[in-house]
Design a protein around this nucleic acid. Structure first.
Length: 333
DNA sequence: TAGGCCATCTGGTCCT
DNA sequence: AGGACCAGATGGCCTA
């Protein structure tokens, strides 16, 4: 059963046996196919082979099978009619199989895209790679499981360290950027384990101005676009959102805005989302110096904000003093 | 230009 | 027999 329409294709130009067979002769045809994943490309008239061409080629290939004496290696009568019909059926089945395979892979990619939306670092403009998406999702699940089993709020750093475990450097930077933390603090050691490097330097403490929600200064391996579009993690000290979260399947958020992390980090986590515009306004995530004009407004809403008198290593200041104390505790000890 | 990522084609294998 | 799934090969695109 076909799930997608299919068109004539040049696939039969391929060598008859095995994808590993050298394809020097098919390179030009393949170039045109590769230019666009859409199945319609297969209808390209320049690459399309007629049935007659195909049959003739098969005949040529048969004739080409000669021994050193020029004698054909093929024995017996040729069933030309049946052969053509069979070739046609084989060709048709191959086209159908290709269409199904494309459809299957598209479904797989759709699922992966949905997964991207529910892991902490999501952007329409700069997507995580497939492998990184899977790794981050695994880490995310692991981190959430740890949180649940511990039965208490985790500290931000250990959570992010778990989140970034095994991720590539660029992805670590992106995730760190989403969380408004510096990637250096989450770098893996030589064994692949996370290693916290200690108190960050000044540029880590004050990596950027409030107007920019991007990746921390000096660690932006992403594009300029990414620094504008990644919305930071929301480390929010509130359990109440936990049961409000939409299911990843049914409530998968769709942000038309620049970006959206899929969750709040709140000790307990949820998929609750805020207006993307508000993310830009609120400067929720500390690690940024929030400008004076917005500071007053931020005082009520920001999870973290710069504060000259607090002792948190990142100079983060929590809205809730109790939460702040809890998170700061490990660093005071 | 090399390397990473991706989409697609392809043949093999398993299952219904 | 035919569909689903898988892995290898290939070439295009993008970025450092």
């Amino acid at each position: 059963m076909l799930t997608l329409p299919f068109e004539e294709h040049d696939m039969m130009c391929e060598p008859p046996f095995g994808a590993s067979f050298p394809r020097e002769n098919t390179g030009e045809h393949r170039k045109q196919d590769m230019s666009r994943p859409a199945p319609d490309d297969t209808s390209n008239s320049e690459t399309k082979e007629t049935e007659d061409d195909s049959s003739e080629r098969e005949e040529d290939e048969r004739d080409a099978c000669h021994d050193e004496n020029g004698q054909s290696k093929r024995r017996g009568p040729r069933k030309k009619g049946d052969g053509e019909g069979r070739v046609e059926r084989v060709k048709l089945r191959r086209q159908e199989a290709n269409a199904r395979e494309r459809s299957r892979m598209h479904g797989l990619n759709d699922a992966l895209e949905n997964l991207r939306k529910v892991v902490p670092c999501y952007s329409k403009t700069q997507k995580l790679s497939k492998i990184e998406t899977l790794r981050l999702a695994k880490n995310y699940i692991w981190a959430l499981s740890e949180t649940l089993s511990a039965g208490k709020r985790p500290d931000l750093l250990s959570f992010v360290q778990t989140l970034c475990k095994g991720l590539s450097q660029p992805t670590t930077n992106l995730v760190a950027g989403c969380l408004q933390l510096n990637a250096r603090n989450f770098l893996t050691d030589h064994n692949g384990d996370m290693a916290f490097s200690g108190r960050p330097s000044y540029d880590v403490l004050y990596p950027y101005q409030c107007s920019d929600m991007g990746t921390p200064t000096g660690h932006n391996t992403g594009t300029v676009e990414s620094t504008k579009t990644f919305r930071p993690y929301n480390y929010q000290g509130a359990y109440d959102s936990f049961y409000e979260g939409a299911s990843p399947e049914g409530g998968s958020p769709h942000f038309e805005g620049p970006l959206s992390p899929a969750m709040n980090f709140s000790g307990i986590f949820s998929l609750k989302h805020e207006d993307p515009v508000e993310y830009g306004k609120n400067c929720h995530y500390g690690m940024r110096y929030c400008g004076v004009p917005t500071r007053g407004a931020l005082a009520q809403n920001s999870m973290y904000r710069m504060s000259p008198d607090n002792h948190f290593p990142y100079d983060l200041h929590l809205r809730s003093q109790s939460i702040q104390d809890e998170i700061n505790a490990p660093f005071h000890n």
